[in-house]
Computed example of a mutant assay.
Amino acid sequence: MTPLWTVGVEQELFLVDPVSRRPVPLAPEVVAQAGDTFDVQRELTPFQIEVATPVCETPGELLDQIRAGREHLAKAAKSAGCLLMASAIPPLGKAGPPPESDDPRYRLMEASHRKLLGGQGVCGCHVHVGVPDADTAITISNAIRPWLPTLLALTVNSPVMDTEDTGYASWRAMIWSRWPGAGAPPHFESAAHYERLVRALIASGALLDKGMVYWDIRPSANHPTVEVRVADLPLTVREVAVFAELVRALAMTAAENPPRDEPVDPVLLRAATWRAARDGIDGRGVDTRTGELVPAHDQAARLVAHTADALRRTGQLSTVEEHLAWLRANGSAATRQRAALRRDSDPRTLVDQLVSWTLD
């Protein structure tokens, strides 16, 4: 069994052509170049690639593995004739329709869910925290539900698509919400309740299997972990690491001090997630306790206060506080993308900047 409170991160990234700066379908070639030093996998489209850290115990180990994974993947991409880009959607669209996947499972998803897969091309960041059993994973899922909009707001990194500002800080969240198994999960009574609902969704045809449970937080289908999936792919290595440490602290806090509040209303939670996707951390968010609009930075500060004891134990409280102060001064990744596009209206320059930030 995975030791308690370990953490691992899966990062999905784009492959872009160095000349056109558009996504390029070279995932098979990049996987071949990457070898087996790191856990590198293909994704929903051949324009995307995923790299996962091993199971990590300390924050320093996690940071090193996130950085090393990106560096290794960037070298493999260069050898395959493309560049690695950390954005949750591509600022420049694909040059034509994507080729069909040769993965049997993805082909089945294409057949059963029709246009949903072809319109994807979004990249997220998934954080796994080791848990002792399924019921603990459900306790953590229930406790983190109210914080999902804040976690999204902290990671927004997809404002520009097809050279146009979408008006959203996370357009990825809007695209991804089309899937029948996406969004915030319901409040579960137990692990058995979760299993019953998933079986019913599979029976309905909405899901092919447990792997298509795309809720923003879920018990992992393949590992003894709880998996938080709400985030855009953060822009820099530091932002990935800080996000992962916040998720670990939330899981620790939830398991050790289960909440006694009434579950958040799912309609209000959906509205809060939409607002987080639109405005990100630099705007206002919905307080899921009251329904009132408040500065999103205040919600983030409340999240840190809520997890302060756990962050102290992992030695990350000052790191997280410093990062939130840095975000106040510099803006979210979405804000930084927009600023770069204002400085130079050519979206190819924005792609170049994103490629540079990927290894920053």
Rank of each mutant, 00 (worst) to 15 (best):
P18I: 08
E10T: 09
A34L: 11
E12W: 11
V198L: 15
V247N: 09
G8W: 08
V156A: 09
A68M: 03
L354M: 13
Q48Y: 06
S190L: 08
R196A: 14
T225D: 05
S332M: 06
K115D: 15
E164I: 01
A308V: 06
D360R: 15
D298G: 08
A296D: 09
C123L: 06
T58M: 03
R178P: 00
L250K: 04
P259H: 03
S112N: 11
E189F: 02
A137C: 05
V294Q: 11
G118I: 01
Q33H: 13
I66Y: 04
L207H: 08
W215P: 11
Q48L: 13
P159M: 02
W357N: 03
M109C: 08
T45C: 03
D39T: 14
V51N: 06
K94S: 14
H323D: 09
E256N: 07
R199N: 15
Q316L: 01
V30R: 08
D261W: 10
R289K: 12
G315F: 05
P54H: 07
D102Q: 15
R105Y: 12
C123D: 08
H72M: 04
A134V: 08
H323P: 01
R289E: 14
T58F: 02
D135C: 03
S141E: 11
A334F: 04
I217D: 07
P224V: 01
L151Q: 11
G93D: 14
R338Q: 13
T37K: 10
V19D: 01
P266E: 13
V213I: 13
P186K: 12
T273Q: 12
R145C: 06
A184Y: 10
A277G: 15
R218V: 00
P219R: 08
A333Q: 06
V16A: 01
G119V: 00
F38L: 14
I202W: 02
A329C: 00
H128M: 11
E321T: 14
L250Q: 15
E321Y: 00
N142G: 11
